[in-house]
Design a protein around this nucleic acid. Structure first.
Lengths: 347, 347
DNA sequence: TTGTAGGCGTTATCAC
DNA sequence: GTGATAACGCCTACAA
């Protein structure tokens, strides 16, 4: 049986035709007599033949695959993007997902991936500009996702600056006059964008955020540690804007340890609208990103590129999700103690 | 420039040798004169040659890649597994991640992936037994992850039954005598295992869990909806054991809507020890799985298989994480209002 | 130690 | 319509 070993030659022999004809039938080429076509088709599934993908790729055609490179896969963010991506592109190509995890070998892995796909999506700070440029120069269709532009390569992104400013303004409206930023802008371009916009909005209202409280990653634990250390070092913000929801959750934990009440003693905001964000106590004020749409758009973009089309960059809207962690008596927050009306399933 | 177009022939020409020698140098074959080796190496990086992976694979050798198939990528579970997996195998091979999302085309995608890798890890209910058997029969090294065995294919799994029983017992110890199961056992073999064990433990203590409250998925929203519907249908459990933490979080939401207090009116347990589980209010009692280790073990297993070695199945220990959602005055729960001592970064 | 030549399984360009 | 046959880029006996 072992269907992996059947080749065009076997099928051709079985059907009494040449391999060229088998190939034509496979690719639905018009110039094949109906009778022949039937015979070949019968031979194909009699033998259970499936064309060897590697050989097909070598012969100069397509890999029938698209690659997507992520910095990491944890958190609520990526899974949804992938979902959107696969829903859109998965019917036409295989999707190879690569997580670089900031490994030094990332460069090689990306290059390796590039050889196995027909197009590639690059998300965040995973691949440096130089490599992106090389890939593009090699003729590989590339789409950038939530990442600064490189040359004229199309970018699909979400609006960081707008919501960042809105969030900062909202905090100032609450009366907070000492607010700090918490995260690691150096390892995530979108975080850097957010921080820059937040700082701008705060300074415009005469609030100086000072130096960001640096974290060593973007997990709950990282946020808790950084916050506690900052506190012990004498930092006394009344409001902290975290780079994402998990770091924000870390602040909840730190507040617990320090003896601070979130919302009253210390305002906190996050980013992403994590699926459990609304169930924290108090509910976390954050920013929702259209993650699945991000994936869908990226997929459509590569597919268009593959088809030889032109793609323009897009910036998708983000949405403020105001709950209670931003401060007491929030004019925008819903009334319930556990604000939970917001759906997490998204669009 | 375009390095993608350089071939062995170019390098051979540049170095004044044959392609065979180039190939030998590349593969560190011993029988090459030192001088020749140097000349070839210089030529290689003078031209920036990188062997074409597709051609290499076609020539009958290796794909330099391992595949890993997941049912889905959302939730706290998979990202960690992948992390462990890539840490271990990533230096030696590329890793192709495939999420099937229960698509009907999953079968084809898995077959397609099988052609591009040297070995494969299959997690959960993503691939039916028949296909697994086919792949194995075709000679592909396969490792099963958190999935029922198929033939003698090695399985890496976590202990579902033990912790499930412990969790059920703990609930009964709390005095709960009407407990329900919530989830979708039909679409996740590990959930089925947990439910079976829970049911057994409950019945041994004369508690009848009745029919599980069925959900349509494993997201927060799915849990909330199912719980509310069950309540409206007259179901009145005093304790609910959810299949995972997200569904459990959904119960928190439902409880809010219904007007029930988690921990007192309604006990809840989850599974996975989601990174925010300890920050829910009250903290969620759940079960921690060694997710990264799961990935590490799986990776080691395929690597061993690739090297021609033998691999035995393993079952990794899981750990009860008792917080407050299981009921008031829990003898095992930590004293703080927001129990948060447990690290989420894992081992 | 090094080179020649025949695959690996398709696709695609020619003739017929 | 159909069939040889030359790529595609590399690996690897087998020779030299």
């Amino acid at each position: 049986m072992t269907p992996g070993k059947v080749t065009v030659y076997d099928v051709a022999g079985e059907a009494g035709v040449s391999i060229a004809t088998v190939s034509r039938v496979l690719r639905d080429h018009p110039n094949v007599a109906d009778g022949t076509r039937d015979r070949v088709k019968q031979a194909i599934d009699a033998l259970g033949w499936r064309p060897n993908q590697t050989a097909r790729a070598l012969a100069g055609k397509t890999n029938d695959a698209i690659g997507i490179v992520f910095p990491d896969l944890s958190g609520p963010y990526y899974a949804e993007v992938i979902r959107g991506f696969e829903r859109t592109s998965g019917h036409r190509s295989a999707v190879h997902i690569l997580a670089t995890h900031e490994r030094p070998s990332a460069h090689d892995h990306v290059r390796g991936l590039a050889e196995r796909v027909d197009g590639m999506v690059v998300m965040g700070q995973t691949v440096d500009d130089e490599l992106v440029a090389e890939l593009v120069a090699d003729g590989l269709p590339v789409v950038l996702l939530a990442r600064p532009a490189v040359g004229s390569t199309p970018v699909v992104a979400t609006d960081n600056a707008g919501s960042a400013r809105a969030l900062a303004d909202h905090l100032v409206d609450h009366g907070h006059d000492t607010v700090a930023l918490l995260g690691d802008p150096d390892h995530a371009p979108d975080v850097e964008e957010r921080f820059t916009a937040m700082r701008g909005a705060l300074e415009a209202r005469d609030v100086d955020p000072g130096e960001p409280i640096l974290t060593r990653g973007f997990e709950v634990e990282d946020g808790a540690i950084a916050m506690i250390e900052a506190w012990e070092a004498g930092r006394r913000p009344r409001a902290v804007m975290a780079a994402n929801d998990q770091l924000a959750a870390g602040i909840y934990r730190a507040a617990d340890a320090i003896g601070l009440a979130i919302g009253t003693d210390l305002a906190v905001t996050g980013w992403d609208d994590h699926d459990l964000a609304g169930l924290l106590h108090p509910g976390l004020t954050t920013v929702a990103q259209p993650m699945r749409t991000l994936g869908t758009r990226a997929a459509n973009a590569v597919l268009t590129l593959l088809a030889g089309g032109q793609v323009d960059s897009v910036v998708l809207e983000t949405e403020l999700v105001v709950r209670d962690s931003c401060g007491p008596d929030c004019p925008l927050a819903p009334p319930l103690p556990h604000p939970s009306s917001r759906s997490t399933t998204g669009g």
